[in-house]
Nucleic acid binder design. Sequence first.
DNA 1: AATGAATGAGGTTTCATTCAT
DNA 2: GATGAATGAAACCTCATTCAT
Lengths: 192, 192, 192, 192
Amino acid sequence: MEATISKRDKIAEAALVLFAERGYDGTTVPMIADKAEVGAGTIYRYFESKEVLVNVLFQEGVARLHESVMRGYPSSGTIREQFRHIFYGMVGFAKEHIHELYFIETHSNARYLDDLSRDRFQQLLDFLHSYADGGKEQGWIRPLPADALIGIVFGAFTKIFTLIRAGKLAETPELLAQIEESCWDAVRIHHP
Amino acid sequence: MEATISKRDKIAEAALVLFAERGYDGTTVPMIADKAEVGAGTIYRYFESKEVLVNVLFQEGVARLHESVMRGYPSSGTIREQFRHIFYGMVGFAKEHIHELYFIETHSNARYLDDLSRDRFQQLLDFLHSYADGGKEQGWIRPLPADALIGIVFGAFTKIFTLIRAGKLAETPELLAQIEESCWDAVRIHHP
Amino acid sequence: MEATISKRDKIAEAALVLFAERGYDGTTVPMIADKAEVGAGTIYRYFESKEVLVNVLFQEGVARLHESVMRGYPSSGTIREQFRHIFYGMVGFAKEHIHELYFIETHSNARYLDDLSRDRFQQLLDFLHSYADGGKEQGWIRPLPADALIGIVFGAFTKIFTLIRAGKLAETPELLAQIEESCWDAVRIHHP
Amino acid sequence: MEATISKRDKIAEAALVLFAERGYDGTTVPMIADKAEVGAGTIYRYFESKEVLVNVLFQEGVARLHESVMRGYPSSGTIREQFRHIFYGMVGFAKEHIHELYFIETHSNARYLDDLSRDRFQQLLDFLHSYADGGKEQGWIRPLPADALIGIVFGAFTKIFTLIRAGKLAETPELLAQIEESCWDAVRIHHP
DNA sequence: AATGAATGAGGTTTCATTCAT
DNA sequence: GATGAATGAAACCTCATTCAT
């Protein structure tokens, strides 16, 4: 009665982990039910179908990631400060729920995502686009297409956290600081 | 006799594209048969099972990627030259078959990979590890764990080629040159 | 106390309509609960199971139909008068609850009817049998098996009321009078 | 290899009997597979879904019934002769496959019938309508709505064949002749 | 060698029923 | 008494694999 995790949340959590580990098609509803310790039928009281479930998880995840990146964004800070903010926003998000970033990354192009899911993800990309465009205009960021710049950082970052999640890399403040610098060096212009 | 070779290859090619686009679990054997324009039963003449098929494709892909990266490797060149060689080896591989790199990337941790597949992939990683370690020893590469360094470059690179494959980025020599520089800047030490 | 009675009746009424419209197997307990505006669990306070529910409804329906046909039966009237009485007894019953006759008709041979339900229905048939046999003995009714005679009238009658229920036929005293005559002509002997 | 009943036909036959005996919702796909002596999956090679199956059976049944009633129809015969022809067309159809008429009768208003099924059934009704209207114009048939006239005959007829199917009535030429006369008397005008 | 019809295990989903509130 | 969340057996359907042709 007190501090009980709701069934809905247990299901969502179990599904997220399994989708991240095995993919959507490799995860069965009974697997989710087992991990969440509920009956298989119970899942359908909270989510219309497996497809709706994955979309809800994706939308919620993207919303949280968006929020993590945006909260306290230094709109009038330097491009460098803004980059650091975005990076550590992603770090905070990834640390909070180690599977969620990987889930979003691996599912962002999935064929079973509905329009709303695609929209929400696009909104996040739009924000990053505007950051990249601003940085390019001010001459701090390389003159690459925004998609490429975002891809480089996002690609490198999620790969690193995948390694951390797999236990192949130990997450320390020092490592994160170095990765952050590495990513910044990947996108910034280097003046000789 | 040529028809026989061609049939096995049509199956392999169809399976590779589908696995890259829909994942292993999202691809059915009849789908592969349709795309390869063979009967479903024919697939089992060439591959014992769907699982064997995905492992064979993975092993062949990794072997080709390994070969692309290794051929003409400038063992006595500079770290910078070696980096460029590895990068353009990956480019050459990715251009040759746009789906194959993505297939390898998305399947390299899959639960259905057998020991041989994991081994072959590890051999490729080992080579990259030794490159990274050499670079660090000589003071050209950041003092990050080799896994992290490889992750950054591999993560960024495959993300970029995913965007190219999706048509969101146009592949030009200039773009590639910039990406190469960007990746190098991500891992090298910047002297003031 | 009145509310209690009303709740049982709301369930019975909702179930009857749904069983008539969708059949027993096509009707779910939640559907009945929705239509009756009660919780699904409440149904089980009044009826042990879905199967018990359909049997109770059937038995009550048959009892009411029997009653409608028997009340005021002119035991010493002519065969013609008795026929008219039975016919308008069925009409009265069907008008009182347009779904109930169809429900009885479509469920009278169902595999889930229990012995009591079959008995009650047989009692009604027995009464009609004795009427038919009497009519045949007196030379007014065709020398067909009683089952056939009853089938003809019952079959034609329920079909007509199905059309009325579906709105394809308007129920008027004139129509009913003609149908009554038509049914009588179907079973009586025609003297040249 | 010779005179083997095709799997498709075994499935169709098994499904028809079960749908007639237990209704659509009361029949499960495994039941059909058992009765047809095929694997459950085989059904889906021939019919897209259970719903498609019931529609195909309905359409084929209605087409055969229509054909039975129309073949050799005496367009220039008397109303009486035409009635006899239609009646014995139905008899021929019902005798050929004792379950099929009952299947059509009980499913003709089902919610899962598609537009084509409804259309085909309406075409049969249209033919009977035109017969009834012709008979009324010529003063041989009672001035009732065509739907009512058809309902009376169809209702009585299927009820009788249900009794025959259930073994409660023995089908003899004499019985059929009497039923035919009875039905005719139900719809014709009686001149004093 | 090549096919694709056939299979049944296992996938997603529904639903009669129970039971804590 | 009344509820509706929870359940798991069983529904419909898919698909990896086999095998007669």
